[in-house]
Design a binder for these strands. Structure first.
Lengths: 251, 251
DNA sequence: TTTGTACGCCGTACAACGTACAGCGTACAG
DNA sequence: CTGTACGCTGTACGTTGTACGGCGTACAAA
């Protein structure tokens, strides 16, 4: 099952995201849980065991409750993911960089988003079909836009620049986490895998037919100890992102 | 279930990817299918109904066979995804841009990758934990690296530049496709959704508390007719990517 | 030509998933 | 005091990927 956000009824989801007091019931027995406790339990599971391990049954078990109980707090799993994402956004650090040069400000934003995905690897995997328009997401948007304010960009350019920067960080985290997830799933470390795959691949791969790929692939493999080094890709990429934005900002 | 690639036994997977003749059996009854027909049927389902609709049962049904039969052609679903991905790579256009300026060459590579994700939207969703080292992927790598050859970059830089460019295209396609998938799943078009969410959101969102977000969000929403325009993000982003690489290449 | 066996195909089965539904008991409104 | 709104739960359904064992075919050896 691919995991979405933004699937359910917008009004209900928004009321939930903003913790609308009018949405809590006035009758019936005392509630044994809270929306926040459900979100917290789900987040803990996703963080510790990955998104595939996040099941309604597991969340319920962690809370000492039967699965169907969760459905009185949350309409379904999609909305729970929305709530988790918004809560994660709300918990992000927001360093005040007023007055600093724009490169430093954007680097801070990038690093803070990277930290988000480090603290919540699952967040890089949920596909935000429609963004969760809760207080966490809006507050994040406001803060991040403020680092681009006053640079002479149009409103549309500000949005485009921010989207561009954030998608880079997100993509980097996604790739990094996919690598980590496959490591966990295959019970074969990266070096072990390459040790097995390398000799076999050599039987099929003709260096004369793929000269550049052989050369560059070997160089990259030797340098990274694998096919991909997320840390290096982040540092390299962030420099490119800032240089790319510079031609727009400093024109 | 999150979809991986590269989960199974490397040797078996590689033999499959390269269509090793030694891997086909010599005994037993005639095989009614081929690996290629399985891959083709699976690809057709993924393309037409999306990755969540790609199930072994459905592939089997399309081939007029019982689910377990597929397992005599393919070790499992993860390997099937590897094969699908490698086949999609193999089918990509590879325009000869020898002698053209590097910006034009890289734009061509980006556009070809974008076309891949347009033809195979599912490909943007599979997480390539470990890349499928088949003829398609290797050929693609060789071709794409050739557009960066002779520019004075080190081998590591060539790999980093290509990775950076491809991750941008991939991330853009992923976001675009997530938006399309949620539209399909929620049975509520984007304008319909905003029409319902807009008034409700206004009740919660205080413009004085989020001045920049309100202003920029409104501008972006009006310009794109939604929160995000993948086409615009691609054109904008590709310019930034090339400008960012320029400071490295033309230093 | 016969026979042993490697191997394709299939029916059944299992565990896990999200969640619909109906019954039961609680606590507030009148 | 009573009716009812509503939280909690047990059971159940339709999915998923795939393990297992039986059956029959077609090639290798005799």
């Amino acid at each position: 099952m691919t995991q979405f956000t933004g699937a359910g009824d917008p009004a209900r989801t928004l009321a939930l995201l903003w913790r609308d007091p009018a949405a809590v019931p006035r009758r019936g027995p005392q509630r044994s849980l809270t929306v926040d406790s459900v979100v917290a339990a789900a987040t803990a599971i996703a963080r510790e065991h990955g998104l595939p391990a996040l099941t309604m049954r597991r969340v319920a078990e962690a809370l000492g409750v039967v699965p169907m109980t969760l459905y009185t707090y949350v309409p379904g799993k999609a909305e729970l993911l929305d709530l988790m994402l918004d809560a994660a956004y709300a918990g992000m650090e927001r360093t005040d960089t007023t007055g600093r040069p724009w490169r430093e400000r954007l680097t801070t934003v990038a690093d803070e988003n990277r930290a988000l995905f480090e603290a919540h690897p699952w967040a890089a995997e949920v596909a935000p079909g429609r963004p969760p328009l809760g207080p966490g997401a809006i507050g994040k948007y406001e803060y991040e836009l403020s680092t681009l304010d006053g640079l002479g960009l149009t409103d549309l350019e500000m949005d485009a620049c921010l989207t561009y920067l954030l998608e880079f960080v997100r993509a980097n985290a996604h790739t990094a986490h996919a690598a980590a997830a496959v490591r966990r799933a295959s019970s074969l470390t990266d070096p072990q895998w390459w040790e097995k795959a390398g000799p076999v691949l050599e039987r099929y791969l003709d260096p004369e037919r793929y000269p550049i790929a052989s050369r560059v692939g070997a160089a990259a493999g030797a340098a990274y100890g694998g096919a991909y080094d997320p840390d290096h890709a982040y540092r390299f990429g962030l420099r490119r992102v800032l240089d790319g934005l510079a031609t727009l900002i400093e024109r």
